[in-house]
Each structure stands twice: as C-alpha cells, then as structure tokens.
C-alpha cells in the first residue's frame, strides 16, 4: 500500500474547553479522493484548517508527505504549502484584483514563468471551470457559484499535488457542480494528484474512501 500523502494522528482540538475534534486519525494516499461528510458544526472545516496548517492542534500531529507541519521550519512549511491547493468555503478571492489576476497570483508570485505564458495558463484554468469569459470581472461582479469556481481555478493553477476543497459545490447548480467534478476527475486521472473533497452531497460522481 502506498505511503499516505496526508496522515492525521490522534488530532484533538478544543477551543476554550470546548472539544471540537477528539483523537481523529486518517490517512489519505496518492490519487485518492476523500470526502468528509458531517453535520453543521461537526468540525469539518476545523479539520481542514489543521490539515493545511492554518491552526495548531491542541494535541496530535499532521504529516504532509511525511513532514510534521506543526514541528517544521517556516521555510519547509512554505514548501509544503506550495504543494497544496486550497479552495475555501467562502471562496476567499482577493477583492482588489480581477478574477484572472486572482488565478494568476500564485503563478506570478511562486514561479518565474513569463507573463504571456501565465496569461495562457490562466485562460486555460478558467476555461476548465467554465469561467473563460469572466476573467476580467472583479470578484464582487461574480455570482456565488462563479466565485467558488474561480477559487477552484486559483487552487489548481499551480498544479499542486494535493487539493483541499471546503464545500466546493455549495451554491452551484447541479449542472455546473457535475462539470466541476468531471474537471477534477479528469485532472486526477491525468495528473495523478490527490484531492480531499468535502461535503459533496450534490456531487454524484465521486468514489469516497475514508480511513
């Protein structure tokens, strides 16, 4: 069996004495899609925030490709984060720049690619999520569903090995939602990346595996 890309060991989280997660264990292996399902307030977003290193756990540890992200240097954490694409529940697009600039941001900041190459990559990425013609729009001009898709485009722009999506299909109509899943499956088959999709009740085509 392949070595897990993400390993969570005995993860416990409590906020002001309120236990949110209690000794959670899970392994996600290469090319695997894991769907986390749970009621509102059950700690799904908290778990994702810990997996991507935004919060430190009360106890337990999280290993990404064998590196404990809570006990490593800032530089190593940066390198790990570059391998993880994240799409947030609220999309979290940067409101002061256009949609295409949002998608181009990781490419401009973290690569040495020339601007014309970045422009082509941004167009292709936006086209993959059905937003090819909306690149010039500012985030406030997008509908809720379009924002989600733009956030997914930004998350996959760098072609990361690991994708973490928080409520990717919330606010999307079934057709767009299915297209998004198809695009992600296509990417999985062709680029051997791993994804962690959460609460995809409206998404039918996934093949969930949990540990």
């Amino acid at each position: 069996m392949a070595t897990p890309v993400i390993s969570v060991h005995d993860l416990s989280v409590n906020y002001d004495g309120h236990q949110v997660l209690d000794r959670v264990n899970l392994d996600i292996r290469p090319n695997e899609i894991l769907v986390l399902l749970g009621g509102s307030g059950s700690g799904k977003t908290t778990l994702l925030h810990h997996i991507i290193g935004l919060e430190a756990p009360s106890s337990g540890n999280i290993l990404i490709r064998g590196v404990d992200i809570n006990n490593c240097s800032a530089e190593i954490l940066k390198q790990i984060r570059r391998q993880v694409g994240v799409s947030f529940q609220e999309a979290a697009l940067f409101n002061s720049i256009s949609t295409e600039e949002n998608v181009a941001l990781p490419l401009r900041e973290l690569t040495d690619l020339a601007d014309p190459v970045i422009e082509v990559m941004v167009y292709m990425t936006l086209a993959a999520v059905g937003l090819a013609e909306s690149g010039k729009l500012m985030p406030h001009e997008l509908s809720g569903g379009m924002k989600k898709r733009a956030a997914v485009a930004r998350a996959i722009a760098l072609d990361p090995g690991i994708l973490v999506f928080d409520e990717p299909s919330a606010g999307l109509d079934p057709i767009v939602s299915a297209e998004l899943v198809r695009a992600l499956h296509f990417r999985q088959r062709n680029q051997s990346s791993e994804r962690n999709l959460r609460r995809l009740r409206s998404i039918e085509a996934s093949n969930p595996t949990s540990t």
Binding site: Q79, F88, E90, F94, E109
Partner: peptide, 17 residues
C-alpha cells in the same frame, strides 16, 4: 480586517505568501 473575515489572509498563507 475584511481580508481576515473573508479568509483572504488565510488564502495568502495557504499560497505560501
């Protein structure tokens, strides 16, 4: 503050920025 509330700052961190 608005960037914090709308998770834009978190998004920056996850982009390793």
């Amino acid at each position: 503050g608005t960037m914090v509330v709308t998770s834009e700052i978190d998004a920056l961190r996850t982009l390793a920025l």
